[in-house]
Structures are given as structure tokens and as C-alpha cells.
């Protein structure tokens, strides 16, 4: 099965992308990254962020809750020290960007603009920072402003990673489309809380965290199926993928691309197997092109 797709001017050798925050900045496991359709870096903010105090991760049956707090070295360091080491990547480099304000996000894009980046993914939905993050994405007016301003200053495609709770994700999706987003990622982690009953306080150092992992697939898939009927821009499905079968579920529901996240923390090599299995599956069924299966199932919800 030919997995290659050219979408919005970007060539994706297959539909599997590495989700932001689960594969660092692309400096490690380059041989694995090169097998994927692209890597979305850990979110960069304008200024460096030290992240949240530990513990930063909690596990439950069905997923994990993380509270990293957007730890990153800031855009200047990223541009000067990290990007030069990514020039030899043989796949798409998508930079995840975030911030506390519209201005910060715009300044960030301005700083990066000349570089060898395939697209930006704007993180409108990180639940792990006190200001900005999910709060930006939940406010339709701010989403509108970010996209309008961003489109004015960049020719690169913009992916909007939208929040899916504490807002109307359908409304937010429409706004991102109407204001020039080229892709939409559904969905980020959703907020969660764990209490340490012995210490009578929240378990995570950052108090609340973002829930991800296998359980999230069912909600995310529902949203993908619903939203892709309403908007025309390509949808990237993200949430709880464990194997090629989960990838197929997203593709059948209309996602053109998928992101793998939590699974990378379990095994940084597993994405290679998923891509291989996906090819095999198509070959066995004599499906020539991935386009034949995208959105194949009509779902009325």
C-alpha cells in the first residue's frame, strides 16, 4: 500500500507522526524519526521554561497523567543550538509552539521563520501550565486572533492542536478553519487530577496534569469522526494509538494523518513496527493507496 500523501504542499511518506512532547526535539533516535511522516517537537515557548516540580507522571490502568509543564529551553536556544542539528532529518520537522499570549506566539514564529521547518503546530491545548496553554485555546476570540496574526507572518502551513474539553471543540475547530489553519489536530491530553491520600495533597507536583493513553482513543476518535464532517481542512487524529489497528480506526473515520504519543514513552522503537504493519495490512488486502481508506466509513454522529 502506498502510504505517501502530499497535503497542503507537504510530502508525508506515511500518515504516522510523532506527537509533541513524546519524542523530544528530534535529536535522538533519528533513524526511527526518519521512518515516520514527521516529528512534532516538544512545545517551544518564547522564553525558557523550567517545567513543573516532580512527580511529573502518574500511571493508571488505561493511560497516564503527565504534568511536565512545557519544560523547554526557549526559542533562541532552540534556533541556535537545536535546529542546526536537525538539518539532516529525512522527514518533516514540525515545530510545536506555545505561549501565554498572542504576542508571544507571533514573536516565536517571527524568530523561527527562516528555518527548515515543514509546518508549525500551535499548541492551543496544553493543560499543564498555569497561564496560556489550554486557556488560550478555550477562548474562541483568542484562537481567532492567534491564527489571523500567525497567517499574516508565515507562509508555512499551520496545524492547530485544539482542546477538546471545557470548550466546544466543534466551535473551536470551525474558528481555526475560518481563520486559516491548514490542519487540525484532535486531540491533546485532557486535564486530570490525582490525590495522594497519605499526604493529603495532589500527587503531581504541578497539581493537575494531562491524561493520555489508550483510554483517550475512544473520545478522540468520536471527535475526529464528528469534526471532519463539519470542516474541510485535513484532520490529524491523536490519542491512545497502540498499534496499526488503532491507526486504521482513525483513518477510516477520516483522519488523513495520525500522531502517536504516549506509546513512544513505552517504546521509542515501536512506531517503526506500526508503519510496517500498516503497509503489510494494505498489501494483504491489495489496497494500492492509503487514500482509498481515509474516511471510508460514513459515520453519522
Amino acid at each position: 500500500m502506498n502510504l505517501n500523501q502530499k497535503i497542503k504542499g507537504i510530502n508525508f511518506k506515511n500518515p504516522v507522526l510523532l506527537a509533541s512532547g513524546t519524542y523530544g526535539f528530534g535529536l535522538k533516535f533519528k533513524e526511527v524519526i526518519n521512518l515516520t511522516g514527521g516529528i512534532i517537537t516538544k512545545t517551544i515557548t518564547f522564553k525558557p521554561m523550567i517545567g513543573n516540580p516532580p512527580p511529573r507522571i502518574y500511571e493508571f490502568e488505561g493511560g497516564i497523567i503527565n504534568s511536565i509543564g512545557l519544560e523547554n529551553p526557549g526559542v533562541k536556544y532552540f534556533k541556535n543550538k537545536i535546529l542546526p542539528n536537525l538539518k539532516n532529518l529525512n522527514t518533516n520537522l514540525i515545530v510545536s509552539i506555545g505561549g501565554n499570549s498572542v504576542k508571544e506566539i507571533i514573536d516565536l514564529i517571527k524568530t523561527l521563520e527562516d528555518e527548515i521547518i515543514s509546518a508549525y503546530e500551535i499548541n492551543l491545548s496544553c493543560p499543564n501550565v498555569k497561564e496560556g496553554g489550554i486557556n488560550l485555546g478555550q477562548n474562541p476570540l483568542i484562537v481567532e486572533k492567534i491564527l489571523k496574526e500567525a497567517k499574516k507572518i508565515t507562509k508555512k502551513p499551520i496545524i492547530a492542536k485544539i482542546p477538546s474539553v471545557f470548550c466546544n471543540p466543534i466551535e473551536i475547530a470551525k474558528i481555526t478553519e475560518n481563520n486559516g489553519a491548514d490542519f487540525i489536530t484532535i486531540t491533546n491530553t485532557i486535564p486530570g487530577l490525582v490525590i495522594n491520600i497519605e499526604r493529603e495533597k495532589p500527587f503531581l507536583g504541578g497539581i493537575s496534569g494531562g491524561i493520555s493513553g489508550p483510554f483517550l482513543k475512544y473520545y478522540s476518535l468520536y471527535l475526529v469522526a464528528k469534526i471532519r464532517k463539519i470542516i474541510k481542512i485535513p484532520v490529524i487524529g491523536c490519542g491512545g494509538i497502540r498499534d496499526y489497528k488503532d491507526v486504521l480506526e482513525y483513518l477510516f473515520c477520516g483522519a488523513m494523518l495520525v500522531e502517536i504519543g504516549t506509546l513512544n514513552l513505552v517504546n521509542p522503537f515501536i512506531v517503526a513496527k506500526i508503519i510496517k504493519d500498516l503497509k503489510e495490512w494494505g498489501k494483504e488486502r491489495r489496497i494500492k493507496n492509503i487514500k482509498k481508506i481515509i474516511g471510508k466509513i460514513e459515520i453519522e454522529i
Binding site: R56, I57, L265
Partner: peptide
């Protein structure tokens, strides 16, 4: 010791102050 995620330097979970 600290709660660890990936163990390979990708996720920044195992923070030590």
C-alpha cells in the same frame, strides 16, 4: 529514584530539582 516515563530522555518526566 524518581517516577520515570520513557527512560530515554524524550519526555522529561523524571525531573530532579
Amino acid at each position: 529514584e524518581e517516577r520515570m516515563g520513557c527512560g530515554v530522555g524524550l519526555c522529561s518526566s523524571c525531573a530532579v530539582p
